[in-house]
């Protein structure tokens, strides 16, 4: 593919792929400025700022978004802690059963969500636990845990652990070594993994369908359910706002990591 024709075709195909990825996002952003004629914000009418001036007009929608944010925050926290511990064990220690743990981590990624969802619904039914915010949190933290453990593991493999020994050799007590050396090295990977978990939880429909009660709806479940009646432009507004917010956070974390990299002892 080094020939100029081959190169051009690959370039065009890649461009096409990126256009494809972003086409619906352009639609979402554009339609947040649309003034829909009926109850469905699906046909372009005319430009308006009205939706952006009243983003929280649909109370149920706002409640669903807040609910999603809370669940995603809690789930990524639980998954972040448990997943990081698993990743640390797998990278820093060689132990009996390590390979089995690796397999256990991959299994949820290779199981269709519909299967995990129905099996969890059954579990909660068996245990007599009412389906609600707690069961949603438990389910989300389960599939996020796999993602966190696997991504953090990949990041930890690239770390130079001899720095720890160096700190100890220089007389730093264990806690101080952890606080000033280990923690700063591990944290960027964990933060990235938790951001991923957060977006996975925010986005989950299929499992949430099975483990939520009738009353509670996260953002996607609300959109799915209300689609039979309407699609309010506020859905587009809040989605766009969340996109901008997460891109901002992502940019911040990149800047922060760069700064850390330049401040790290290795570079000074």
């Amino acid at each position: 593919m080094t020939g100029s024709w081959g190169r051009r075709i690959v370039g065009l195909a890649a461009l096409g792929g990126f256009v494809l990825l972003f086409a619906p996002i352009v639609v979402i952003v554009a339609f947040s400025f649309n003034e829909p004629a009926g109850r469905y914000n699906l046909v372009w009418q005319r430009f308006t700022m009205e939706n952006w001036l009243h983003p929280f007009e649909r109370e149920e929608l706002t409640a669903a978004v807040l609910f999603s944010l809370r669940i995603a925050g809690a789930a990524s926290l639980v998954a972040g802690v448990l997943g990081t511990l698993v990743a640390l064990a797998l990278v820093r220690h060689r132990f009996r059963g390590g390979a089995l743990v690796d397999l256990l981590l991959v299994l949820p990624l290779t199981t269709p969500e519909i299967v995990m969802g129905s099996s969890l619904a059954l579990l909660f039914l068996d245990l007599g636990v009412d389906r609600g915010p707690l069961t949603i949190l438990l389910a989300h933290s389960m599939f996020c845990l796999s993602f966190v453990a696997l991504t953090v593991k990949a990041r930890l493999r690239g770390i130079d652990w001899t720095l720890e020994d160096a700190a100890m050799d220089l007389g730093a007590p264990p806690w101080r070594t952890f606080r000033t050396v280990t923690f700063p090295m591990v944290v960027p990977g964990v933060v990235a993994a938790m951001l991923l978990s957060f977006s996975l939880s925010m986005d989950d429909v299929i499992i949430t369908f099975f483990v939520s009660g009738d009353g509670d709806a996260n953002f996607p479940k609300y959109v799915y359910g209300s689609f039979q009646r309407e699609l309010a432009p506020q859905v587009h507004v809040l989605s766009t706002a969340l996109l901008v917010l997460s891109l901002g956070l992502l940019a911040l974390s990149v800047v922060w990591q760069r700064r850390r990299a330049t401040l790290s002892p290795g570079r000074v």
Binding site: F18, L42, V43, D203, V205, Y224, S239, L242, L243, L250
Partner: peptide, 24 residues
């Protein structure tokens, strides 16, 4: 590569619904 992940930050459901606009 970061661009490839950007779609994850908008709702999967709403992106799917947006295809009904694009394929109307």
């Amino acid at each position: 590569v970061g661009l490839v992940i950007v779609p994850f930050f908008t709702s999967f459901l709403l992106r799917t619904i947006s295809w009904t606009v694009l394929l109307a």
